[in-house]
Nucleic acid binder design. Structure first.
Length: 591
RNA sequence: GGCCCAGUAGUUCAGUUGGUUAGAAUGCCAGCCUGUCACGCUGGAGGUCGACGGUUCGAGCCCGUUCUGGGUCGCCA
């Protein structure tokens, strides 16, 4: 029999296998040479099992065992024995048994690895990414990818069961305006022309609806050439889906059912359906975010009416200029914050362009606040009443335009929750945010841009506002939010050509431009288009949240660094002259 | 593009006010050791202090530039 055949996996063996002859393969986690007795901890993807070599029983075999080093790949045969009472290791799943070796083959030697293969690894991410294959040997990492596999499988089973079919869409496709920066791929056959990698299969899935597939889904790679973040990679995976003859509720129902299955299967946690829904307006007003973390309080409260005539110019001026004054009450945190820490929070909100952070600390000795002297008695008492402030509380106030107030207080809310451990990690903060604005105004481009995408349908009751107050038009768009992360989003699409034309007008595209950019879709729409809508879920973020990591790189087998390079392969790299010549590409010299 | 943090044995770190030969733990190598599982004991090897330049009699340490990694703002329909 070949020396790499095995009969069992390490982690699957137990007292039930006592006395059995087994063959095992794997990597050497650790060896302990006691002189006449030698132990090898053998690791495969299922776990670790101890193998024993005894010099008295087989001196030749013992000599081979002494040559074994960490991460060698070996093949071992032997009999499963029970450990003596005093040799049992209760911290190991296989700690009651061991293999009494009668054969050992070194299949492959290994150099001393630059990182240890263990779960509580303390090593720079630099090294983990360069030696990713070693990093991926660690059981915690293997577990992440098993979870990821199980979720993928569950998704395919779920959509199959519900009558969806998976259709693949092109990776080499057409560049589209709007949205993120595209990754471009030069065409050799047609020099000077470029494909773009898809930011999402959006237009293709709509066309599949025109084709009559009715219910489509796909687990698909998407590409966006934007700066990276802890939860953003340039290539990432979406669960993309689209349905015909549906409204928003139908799409949400399907996704809710999926999320329920996922949480039961992966986390053994049930979630009650339907999921809570919150309008965009409410999310912004209460949490200062369109992806609120609803697992804790510290909600924003409006103080604008109380302070509109305030002698404190910071407040009254902000209100005169159409802004607002909002506050959060960090209940019981007043005494826990030093003056230095409060000032640090002031610096923190400046990141989000707040000019300052006003505060009122309700201490045992009374109110301490640098702004109290600018406020009237009745203003202070109204604030106390509105904020429900008690001794021990501290109120933080920001006055500015709405965006700055929402951003800074929304982020301050999260910062305080982190600082004071206010988040119950067992809670599942899963909800829908609905009724997003259809458009926002882009100050740089001096025009409206679609908040979701140009094919998102306005809400029926707001259609008249398209002509008069476009910024107040709400869309049939919905995001699914989990623990403060935007997990996914979607919309019902426009299938009425008149409304579509109106939308293009608002976005500042002439008919010609629209046809140049999206002509293939508009052409398709001419031949019988069912009403349709769908959604896409960020798979990497979902797995991240399911496995409890806060870093998207941990759930991608071969991720990129912040400068979008792969430390293992050293991509991207310089193309050679011949390749460039074939593509008829030349580079300008950097000045 | 902006701001912040980090970079010293294979690894994780310490390194005083700028001063002789840059340390510890762990890992690695060798020897000893028959119930270990963080095995133990003894000994040994191992350094471009990220790179470049400057200040200085003298730089791991001070200054400047730069590279790499991370976080973040802008950006991400």
């Amino acid at each position: 029999m070949a020396k790499y055949k095995r009969t069992h996996m390490c982690g699957e063996l137990s007292l039930n296998n006592l006395g059995e002859e087994v063959s095992l393969t794997g990597w050497v986690q650790k060896s302990r040479d006691l002189g006449g007795l030698l132990f090898i901890d053998l690791r495969d993807r299922t776990g670790i099992l101890q193998v024993v070599f005894n010099k008295d029983i087989d001196p030749q075999l013992f000599e081979i065992a002494q040559k074994v080093r960490g991460e060698y790949v070996i093949h071992v045969s032997g009999k499963i024995g029970a450990r003596a009472e005093n040799a049992i290791n209760k911290r190991m799943k296989t700690g009651y048994i061991e293999v009494l070796a009668n054969d050992l083959t070194i299949i492959s030697k290994a150099e001393t690895p630059p990182i240890y293969i263990e779960d509580d690894l303390n090593v720079s991410e630099n090294l983990r990414l360069k030696y990713r294959y070693l990093d991926l040997r660690r059981p915690v990492m293997q577990n992440i990818f098993f979870v990821r596999h199980r979720v993928n499988k569950l998704i395919r089973d779920y959509f199959d069961k519900n009558g969806f079919i998976e259709v693949e869409t092109p990776v080499l496709t057409k560049t589209t305006p709007e949205g993120a920066r595209d990754y471009l791929v030069p065409s050799r056959v047609q020099p000077g022309k470029f494909y773009a990698l898809p930011q999402s299969p959006q237009l293709f899935k709509q066309i599949l609806m025109v084709s009559g597939f009715d219910k489509y889904y796909q687990i698909v790679k998407c590409f966006r050439d934007e700066d990276l973040r802890a939860d953003r990679q340039p290539e990432f995976t979406q669960l993309d889906m689209e349905m015909s003859f549906v409204d928003a509720d139908d799409v949400m129902n399907i996704i809710e059912g999926l999320m329920k299955d996922v949480f039961i299967s992966i986390k053994n946690q049930d979630i009650s359906l339907p999921l809570p829904r919150m309008t965009y307006k409410e999310a912004m007003e209460r949490y200062g975010s369109d992806k609120p973390d609803v697992r804790f309080g510290l909600e924003l409260k409006d103080l604008s009416d109380i302070l509109k005539d305030s002698e404190f110019k910071v407040f009254s001026d902000a209100l005169k200029n159409g802004g607002c004054v909002k506050a959060i009450n960090a209940e019981g945190c007043g005494g826990k914050l030093s003056r230095k820490e409060i000032d640090a929070l002031g610096e923190f909100v400046k990141t989000y362009r707040a000019k300052g952070l006003a505060w009122m600390n309700f201490t045992e000795e009374g109110l301490k606040s640098p702004i109290a002297k600018f406020l009237k008695e009745e203003e202070i008492s109204s604030i106390i009443e509105r904020m429900n402030a008690k001794t021990g509380d501290i109120i933080f106030i920001v006055a500015d335009n709405k965006k700055v107030v929402y951003d800074s207080l929304g982020q301050l809310r999260l910062e305080l929750a982190r600082k004071f451990n206010l988040i119950d990690e067992n809670k599942i903060g899963l909800l829908w945010v609905t009724e997003f604005p259809l458009l926002e105004y882009d100050e740089e481009e001096k025009r409206y841009v679609a908040m979701h995408h140009p094919f998102t349908s306005p809400m029926d009751e707001d259609i008249e506002l398209l002509d008069t107050e476009p910024l107040n038009v709400r869309a049939k768009a919905y995001d699914i939010v989990l623990n403060g992360y935007e997990l996914g989003g979607g919309s019902i699409r426009i299938h009425d050509s008149e409304i579509q034309q109106k939308m293009f007008n608002l976005l500042g595209f002439s008919k010609e431009e629209a046809w140049k950019k999206f002509g293939f879709l508009l052409e398709a729409f001419k031949y019988g288009t069912p009403p349709h809508g769908g959604l896409a879920i960020g798979m990497d973020r979902l797995i991240m949240l399911l496995t409890g990591t806060d870093n998207i790189r941990d759930v991608i087998a071969f991720p990129k660094t912040q400068s979008a390079s792969c430390l293992m392969t050293d991509a991207p790299s310089i193309a050679d002259e011949k390749q460039l010549a074939e593509l008829k590409l030349k580079f300008e010299k950097e000045e």
